[in-house]
Simulated assay, not measured.
Amino acid sequence: MTEEIGMDKPIVLVVDDKLSAREAYRQMLKNDYEVVLKGNGREALEFVKQRPPHAVLLDIKMPDMDGIEVLRQMKEICPEVEVVMVTAYASLETAKEAMKYGAMEYLIKPAGIKEVKEAIRKAVSRRMRKARFDEKLLMLLSFTRSVTSSLDERKVLDTILEWAERFFEAEMIWLYKTDTATPELWASKGELSGSDEMLREAERIAAETMEGRELIVESERGIAGLPLIARDKVIGAFVFRSPMLREEEIGPSLKSLLTIFSDHAAIALENARLYEERKRVEEHLRRSKEKLKSALNGIIQAMALAVEMRHPLTAGHQRRVAELACAIA
């Protein structure tokens, strides 16, 4: 028997040669997952090729192709799939072999309902975290290309806010800079980001983040802060509120992506600052050059006039030319 595959629930593939076992697992899992039942390894592998599931509950002892071989081939087809092995014939050697080929967990029959549900929950959660990581990694690459395409500070700030809203799944975002003794708001986004209460909370997180130079997460409040560090100097802080922080733990992989995002944002902002500084220096040099040129012209004219006044043939020449010009006029 095979369940229809829906789009709303994670898909769990159950592979066992015994119909009674397959039906028992289906009853355990059907409320939370779309359960697909297969009676042998070849059917299971064909299904994985067509539609990779989130998790697999795989019996080891099966005719034709045992679970270890199914696991090996399944991981070749879809390395991301999480597999929970089940067997009534437990042995250390079998367990080692299952782990060698990438099984996530190893259950001994008869496994209880709670044990099976917990193993599948972990497998599905892990699979979703991997998918989330891959998605955010692609977003991070796109963000890096986008944020480094401009040296205008306002455009850089707008780009950071736009991508941060998607990357952090953020409801509110604040960017602070360290030009003053206390964090100074650089830019913000979100319907309530300008309220006094939210600003006080964001400023507190920003100050703690800049002082500690590391990620701060307050899961219960759903708020986090990341330091903006460029050339080993804290130039500001990035603070955001997101339901993502309340719904899941920020593991090492996701933490590394968040840190890379803030690092790239900091580098882009620092580059924009240096570009503006360079433009100011160039403008100052241009004006200084014009003043110097004007001063040199004045000196040359004064020297020419002095020489003219001292020579008997040209003395008073400039005055006479001026008088003649007035007479002609």
Results as ranks from 00 to 15, higher is better:
P227F: 13
T182A: 14
E220W: 08
I250D: 03
E208Y: 12
G225I: 05
K279H: 12
R213K: 14
L254D: 07
I160L: 04
G236N: 07
K177L: 08
A170Q: 01
D179H: 10
T180P: 07
L254H: 09
A207V: 00
H284R: 15
E184Y: 11
L245P: 00
F238I: 01
I223N: 08
M172P: 04
G190K: 03
V217K: 02
I160C: 06
E282S: 06
S253R: 13
D196I: 00
F168R: 05
T180E: 15
F167N: 00
E169W: 09
L245N: 06
E276M: 07
G194H: 09
L175I: 06
P183L: 02
L258Y: 15
G222A: 04
G194R: 10
A202V: 00
V234S: 06
T259D: 11
E211D: 14
G225Q: 05
G222L: 09
S219Q: 14
I235R: 02
G236E: 12
S242T: 06
T209R: 00
E247D: 15
T178F: 13
R200P: 00
R241T: 12
R204G: 02
N271V: 00
N271K: 04
L185E: 13
G222N: 06
Y275D: 11
E247S: 15
S188V: 01
E277D: 15
S256N: 12
E220Q: 11
E201I: 05
E169L: 12
I235C: 03
G190L: 04
D196Y: 06
F167L: 00
E249W: 10
F238G: 01
R204D: 11
Y176T: 03
L157M: 13
R213Y: 10
E248S: 14
R278G: 15
F167H: 02
L269E: 05
M244G: 11
A237N: 08
S262C: 09
